[in-house]
């Protein structure tokens, strides 16, 4: 029976804090999804929306390494200016998500957008 009590204690000790944290997580205040200006009509992005949302920085950095560090130029336009050709205004597009996510990318310190 003492084994039974130990098992019950271990389960309760793990489950109760987790349960409270999960309820807290479900009840957390949520900021609304930021409104983003729609892209230029009939434009086609590099990747589907979901992947762009999470991977655009990876692609931009890969492009930077390719061009600046490896010196490979040419290829399809995939840089910031290509972004700008469809998403014209930075304040209505890039900045909204960056502000919500609390990130301060240093791209725009040099690149005009």
């Amino acid at each position: 029976m003492s084994r039974r009590r130990n098992i019950a204690l271990a389960l309760v000790a793990l489950a109760v804090p987790l349960l409270f944290a999960m309820v807290g997580f479900a009840a957390r205040p949520r900021r609304p999804t930021p409104w983003l200006e729609a892209a230029r009509v009939q434009s086609r992005c590099l990747l589907p929306r979901e992947r762009m949302r999470y991977e655009h920085m990876v692609h931009l950095k890969a492009l930077r390494d390719r061009v600046v560090r490896d010196g490979v130029r040419g290829g399809p336009p995939e840089g910031l200016s290509a972004c700008q050709s469809c998403h014209a205004r930075r304040a209505q597009f890039c900045d909204r998500c960056h502000a919500q996510a609390g990130v301060t990318p240093d791209c725009f310190a040099c690149h005009a957008y």
Binding site: E50, R51, R53, Y54
Partner: peptide, 10 residues
């Protein structure tokens, strides 16, 4: 609409 995106693979 909203969706849980990551790890979303097309």
């Amino acid at each position: 609409g909203e969706r849980a995106v990551f790890p979303f693979w097309t």
